[in-house]
Design a protein around this nucleic acid. Structure first.
Lengths: 339, 339
DNA sequence: GGAGAAAACGGAAACTGTATCGGTGACTGA
DNA sequence: TCAGTCACCGATACAGTTTCCGTTTTCTCC
């Protein structure tokens, strides 16, 4: 059994209150007693029972994180940044994976609430905002990351998805592509934002958006590669086929690239490929992949900052939005000679 | 404020004890009261305060996981498998990243202990076993994963690292390589096991182990690619250079491959390359990479099983070891015509 | 009708820590 | 000498739940 305040108190003929005060650096303890107590604490290697503390203070010093998929490097990076940011203030991170299942996500959120987490951070797969309205009723501070909801005024940290789409598409146009396609993702804000940026960039460049060049696919991120592969195969059968494609994310882009190469075409000469996410290994791919960096580390860090601010300063009158600017990382998959 | 047992009790003119019993499906409650209580719980959407419960039962229903790096896909997969396995029994996972820093790891373990986690799961970066002896003194159940310690009898789940080395090396020999090199990792059990397997396979095949063909590198996993790149460059300057290389992990292999290609040599014809980890994108690399699968998903799942067994059945008299068999996944990077 | 048992419920302590407020003794200053 | 102040410490009352044991009521059966 681990030592308790009471044990130390008895050993030293003091009251638990005194020990507790030492623990919390309360001023009205003499230097002498403080040292005796600290010494004894060390000997017993005492650790306060945080569950007990949470019970009385009403603060658990736990943040809950719910992500759709831990294996996705993006969420891994976010979790890392978050964990590092929170650690400094003594917060722990409890992690839930929703497996891209809205029902499971709700259930996990319930569990986290039962644990009385101080703040909730979620990359949601919900299609409705009801869950979050409930959180607001109960005044649970929460931060949405990556994906957000139209019409829900919530604290949010993520990348500017429209800018992602614009950036990649403009770059493809710049690289000389004339028939630019898009392979998109499921029906969440990220995918919608990116395709919107894609359209906007094409229009700004005076190019039409051919409907057959746009395909939005419902898939988990893990199936991205297979999904991109199939979509690209279909597009290559068109005549004329696209000569550039912007993909919702990097796995999708990898699948698309595979389809292009298998069809006997070259990347980037025949079809230029750009992705999003800037995965660590983008450089080592078949053809090194041009990708839009989502700033995942920064998202984690900014989210930690926002979460801590919520806890320390209370909820701001108007929820804050942090929109990070994406950065284009150009590699061989779009590097083709200008003509 | 969330509802408490007391609130429900007062509303219904019952005692908290009764409500608590309903909550835990205790038999001695009439069907009628049970239903009244459940109804009221639903109305208030009551959730038991798990911190309070933990305090009295002494069980937090929390498992602590400490990994060196969340971004590494291996640990992401383990965390996912673990989280899924534990969820079924109502356990949550609190996550700490040690950033490959032994001191930080110890500190995080302390924090988890203060939270009174029921079980600790750690992929340790410690060089000494002292931390774990302390855990044993305090009778904290724990499971080591991935990396273990010579001379420490602890519950362990991981892959058979010697088999990893043997499998990859034997395969390279089989592919006709005559001068096989190894680029190894830092001084932890995984790297040591793999190099041991490497040596054993060579000896079993009647080949000598040239010291200049073996390089063990201290690096975090993130720096793996850079590290593999440098090591390979050095080896290619030897005469004769190796014609096959088994790398500690996939990032290292990617770096090595880059060095080979930059030197104007071909993979696999001039140098065959094998890695370990079987990362999701191995198929899409410059040359699709042959890799030994570490069974990361299975590790997570088996660890969850073992952790739950520890909690339900108590610690077994002798710690158990689960050694998973690695599987070789052959791709183009070692596929060369037999002569 | 009364013993005994079963069913349904509740009182009180316990878990470990924190907050609040009050108390004690020593010293100050007039 | 005595009120006032300060430094230090402790009694008590929680926080929300479980557990142990006890009580009350009803039922069964001879």
């Amino acid at each position: 059994m681990p030592a308790r305040l009471k044990d130390i108190a008895e050993d030293l003929n003091l009251s638990v209150v005194t020990i507790s005060k030492v623990l919390r650096d309360h001023p009205d303890i003499s230097r002498e007693t403080r040292e005796r107590v600290l010494k004894r604490m060390k000997e017993l290697n005492y650790r306060p029972n945080l569950a007990a503390r949470a019970l009385v203070t009403g603060r658990s010093y736990i943040a809950g994180l719910v992500v759709p998929d831990l294996v996705h490097p993006f969420f891994g990076q976010v979790a890392k940044g978050l964990s590092n940011g929170l650690r400094k203030k003594g917060y722990s991170l409890v992690l839930s994976s929703s497996e891209d299942d809205p029902a499971l996500e709700r259930q996990e959120i319930e569990l986290l609430l039962a644990r009385r987490v101080d703040v909730l951070i979620v990359a949601s797969t919900q299609s409705s905002v009801e869950t979050f309205h409930r959180l607001e009723e109960q005044k649970i501070p929460y931060v949405l990351i990556d994906r957000r909801f139209h019409g829900l005024a919530a604290n949010f940290v993520g990348v500017d998805d429209a800018a992602v789409g614009e950036l990649a598409t403009a770059h493809l146009m710049d690289a000389g592509c004339r028939r630019i396609a898009h392979i998109g993702g499921p029906n969440v804000s990220t995918a919608l934002g990116r395709v919107a940026g894609f359209r906007r960039a094409l229009q700004a460049g005076g190019m039409a958006v051919a409907p057959e060049y746009v395909e939005m696919r419902e898939h988990g991120d893990d199936a991205g590669a297979a999904s991109g592969y199939k979509a690209m195969q279909r597009m290559l059968a068109l005549s004329p086929p696209p000569d550039g494609v912007f993909c919702y994310n990097d796995p999708t882009a990898m699948g698309a690239m595979k389809a292009v190469l298998e069809a006997g075409l070259r990347v980037p000469q025949d079809v230029a490929v750009a992705g999003c996410g800037n995965v660590a290994y983008a450089e080592f791919l078949r053809v090194p992949l041009t990708s839009v960096d989502q700033q995942s580390g920064a998202i984690g860090e900014r989210t930690a900052r926002m979460a801590l601010a919520l806890l320390e300063k209370g909820a701001p009158p108007r929820p804050k939005t942090v929109l990070l600017s994406p950065k284009l990382v150009v590699r061989a998959s779009t590097l083709r000679p200008r003509r």
